[in-house]
Amino acid sequence: MEYLIAFVVGGLICLIGQLLLDFFNITPAHLTSGFVVAGACLDGFGLYDRLIAFAGAGATVPITSFGHSLLHGAMAESEDHGFIGIAMGIFQLTSAGISSAILFGFIVAVLFKPKG
């Protein structure tokens, strides 16, 4: 069951993305930037956590969860260090994603040849 929910919720988020791409003729960069902001906004109202509790990977795998994690890290740190903590905590939870993207991206680029 949790697989089905992850499939459907993740699929629906991507479907919304496709509709935005096709109807408004925006670039993928605009789309992903918008989704990250949307994820941060939803988390601002505490809604994204509920979606994760419901859909699991269906909510954590789409890029919207990146915005959610950025805000989460910032808020957690601000509890200890006040408003200075916001800047300290932004990348706290997303470190694994960003550092692995840099690491693997770099390694693959060094080892592979573009196929065209």
């Binding site: 993740g10 699929g11 988020i13 991507c14 479907l15 993305g17 496709q18 935005l20 791409l21 993928p28 789309l31 992903t32 989704f35 795998v61 789409p62 890029i63 919207t64 969860s65 990146f66 994603g97 993207a101 840099i102 693997f104 991206g105 770099f106 693959v108 680029a109 060094v110 592979f112 040849k113 573009p114």
Partner: peptide
């Protein structure tokens, strides 16, 4: 897949890797 492979975090990884690979001929 269009947005189906752009929106998941895999699309983020693809954007990073493809850009790096594309400019490989200009040096590390």
């Amino acid at each position: 897949g269009g947005a189906g492979s752009i929106v998941p975090v895999t699309g983020f990884a693809n954007a990073v890797t493809s850009a790096a690979l594309e400019h490989k001929s200009e040096g590390i």
